[in-house]
Design a protein around this nucleic acid. Structure first.
Length: 475
RNA sequence: CGGGGCGUAGCGCAGCCUGGUAGCGCGGCGGUUUUGGGAACCGUAGGUCGUAGGUUCGAAUCCUAUCGCCCCGACCA
């Protein structure tokens, strides 16, 4: 499956895995700050403790609805959709098939697997008007297995990997950290079905590869660490952790692991050897969370390479064999006319959590610093003298030239003072800013500033557009 | 679920102890002067003081109940 490598252009947050814009905005309304909806806050709302939560509130990305449940305001929604888009592209690159399952599930399905009682009060239970027990799904193993058993009967239909990205709910006793540990959360979960354990382990490895590429595209280093299987069960599982001081788990690792880069390698996802090779490369060094930490093994690493840090979990992959296929009777006929339970695994990526995790990993005291792969807008245009004919015209031209190139700029066309505009741009964290003012225009130049380094260069407007386009690898 | 805290204007807070016409800063709106890193001044709008009951001549303030939110811990994608 061929998936465009270019950054998808978002308009109003509507996207689908083609990577192409499906519509254009009326007169660019969605890209002019004076007509957009970006309710930034100068002061930090008192409920927020950690930096990503504070910045998401201040940058007008989210609004809390109740504990652990949030509305995604336009700019937050854009970032969420950009992350979702990357996940879609990387899953489909590996041949995994998108679908969508409901948020509400019948309790009977969970009674079959035995998890209705096992799950406890974190499961939100609901009763409909007919007094039927329902639940707001915290995950989808039962439901996907039910779909599978209804429609798949032969080994010839395997292997199969289905995934969806959907809202889920876990009634956490104590939600906190904004979207990083909400009760309602947006998550990709995928399920593989294979005839044999070996085939299912290849699916496991293949997912590890897709995850490495996915996180790198988001500007993150997420380290696969050996994990605990928890209530999902199974004996083969890795968690992906982003290193950040505010992470909820303590992690222990060999510093060599942070030198590993997946990069732009071309992987044949059907090749058992290639996927196995990547897994070995990325998991052979010591990397554990506190749950699986082994002091003796850790001590065997040369002291100068031992690292203890904190991490945010942004994904997990499992192989759990026939646990659910046995319980729910998901069997296929093999080439020997026998009914055999399928081998399964499940694989999650916390899409909404990633928004917070990326900010935790990428910010400074002025605000967010978006990695280019997930930024809500490719660049900002700051007009320092709104109402000045020359400055207005230069901004309009820049704006048109950027959009004509398929880029998605945010034009600050408000009648604000320079300081306020700069502060807003720094807060919302667009990676590049083009500053347009009478002073530069006198010499035919605008200023291009990196949010990350703070460095500025003076360029002609045409060169600035070309430069941004080059950065985003668009033509 | 144990322990603690807080609900007063869009946001941040004071007022409560010791009951007596609800305040400050930021933000909003109008205006004047400003204009390359969150400007100054003048004016102006905006609040069932979380909710319900009680005590009292009178309750943001005291009492009771209740709802919500936050923090620490245990738990978790």
């Amino acid at each position: 499956m061929q998936v465009a490598k270019r950054a998808g252009v978002l308009c109003g947050g509507f996207i689908w895995p083609s990577g192409k814009p499906s519509l254009t905005c009326s007169k660019g309304v969605l890209m002019r700050l004076s007509r957009y909806f970006l309710p930034v806050l100068k002061e930090t709302p008192s409920e927020a403790q950690i930096v990503s939560h504070r910045l998401m509130l201040r940058a007008g990305m989210i609004k809390q609805s109740s504990a652990g449940i949030y509305s995604w305001l336009p700019m937050g929604y854009k970032v969420l959709k950009r992350i979702e888009q990357i996940v879609h592209e990387e899953q489909q690159r590996a041949g995994h098939i998108p679908m969508l399952m409901p948020t509400l599930q019948p309790a009977d399905l969970w009674r079959e697997s035995g998890r209705y009682d096992a799950y406890g009060p974190e499961m939100l239970r609901i009763r409909d008007r007919h007094e039927r027990d329902m639940l707001y799904g915290p995950t989808n193993e039962e439901m996907i297995t039910d779909i599978f058993r209804a429609h798949v009967n032969s080994y010839k239909d395997l292997p199969l990997t289905l995934y969806h990205i959907q809202w889920k709910f876990r009634d956490e006793v104590r939600p906190r950290f904004g979207v990083m540990r909400g009760r309602e959360f947006y998550m990709k979960d995928g399920y593989n079905f294979d005839l044999t354990k070996e085939a299912a382990l290849h699916a496991y490895n293949r997912h590890l590869v897709t995850y490495l590429r996915t996180y790198e595209r988001m500007g993150l280093q997420a380290i696969p660490m050996r994990a605990d299987s928890g209530p999902i069960g199974g004996d083969n599982t890795h968690e992906f952790l982003v290193l950040a001081d505010t992470g909820e788990s303590e992690v222990f690792y060999d510093s060599e692991i942070t030198d590993l880069k997946f990069g732009d390698r071309d992987i044949d996802y059907d090749s058992v050897e290639e996927c196995q090779g990547v897994l070995e490369e990325f998991t052979s060094r010591y990397a554990r969370t506190d749950e699986t930490h082994d002091e003796a093994e850790f001590a065997a690493i040369p002291e100068e390479r031992r690292r203890t840090a904190r991490g945010i979990e942004v994904g997990q992959i499992f192989y759990f064999g026939t646990k659910y296929s046995d319980a729910l009777g998901a069997k296929v006929v093999n080439d020997n006319q026998e009914q055999v339970p399928v081998h399964m695994g499940s694989h999650g990526i916390g899409v909404s959590r990633l928004v917070g995790a990326i900010i935790e990993a990428s910010h400074d005291d002025k605000g967010i610093i978006w990695p280019e792969g997930v930024t809500p807008f490719h660049c900002g245009i700051v007009n320092l003298k709104q109402g000045d004919d020359e400055a207005d015209a230069a901004c309009e031209q820049l704006y048109s030239a950027l959009t004509a190139r398929g880029l998605d700029p945010l034009y600050d066309d408000r009648k604000e003072r320079a300081g306020g505009k700069f502060a807003t741009m720094d807060l919302i964290g667009l990676p590049w800013r083009i500053t347009v003012g009478p002073r530069g225009l006198k010499n035919g130049v605008v200023e291009l500033t990196s949010r990350k380094s703070g460095e500025s260069v003076e360029l002609t407007p045409e060169a600035a557009v070309a430069r941004i386009a080059e950065i985003y690898a668009l033509t």
